[in-house]
Design a protein around this nucleic acid. Structure first.
Length: 136
DNA sequence: CTTCTGACA
DNA sequence: TGTCAGTA
């Protein structure tokens, strides 16, 4: 798929990414250190980010703003690989209750719950069942 | 001039 | 996280 190739193409330096994401270079480097993103390197060991990396950083930024810690973000991103939609809603659903930060334990339990429910149906039906809880 | 790593507060 | 140092 060529589209994916383009999104994965290492294009911009960290300076551009800081403007695109509103994150500081320090934060971006730190998140990479923690394995949240893995931009390619080039000439003088300089980071080259792809659109894919930028999208990812934007998602990370959202979660950070919502008070999710790095460990929690890792959980979400890891789930994203298995079931994007459920992972996304897991966090959104937690918000309404209280604006407090999600501890690693809370998030883990939340995600575990979603995974268990997911096991009861096919991908599509599970997603719909999940959505129903937002319509009442 | 821009970015990188490491380090200190 | 910000910031400074010493490089590449």
């Amino acid at each position: 798929m060529q589209l994916n190739d383009r999104k994965s193409m290492p294009l911009f330096p960290i300076s551009i990414v800081t403007e695109l994401t509103e994150l500081t270079a320090r934060q971006i480097r730190y998140y990479e250190e923690k394995g949240l993103v893995m931009p390619k390197r080039s000439d003088g060991n300089r980071r080259l980010f792809s659109f894919y990396d930028v999208d990812r950083l934007l998602e990370i930024k959202e979660l950070i703003d919502q008070g999710v810690n790095l460990a929690g973000i890792k959980q979400v991103l890891r789930m994203k690989l298995e079931d994007p939609q459920v992972a996304q809603k897991s966090v959104e659903e937690k918000q309404p209750s209280e604006k407090r930060d999600l501890t690693e334990k809370e998030l883990h339990n939340l995600l575990r719950k979603e995974l268990i429910e997911a096991g009861y149906g096919s991908k599509s039906s599970m997603i719909q069942g999940d959505l129903s809880r937002f319509y009442h």
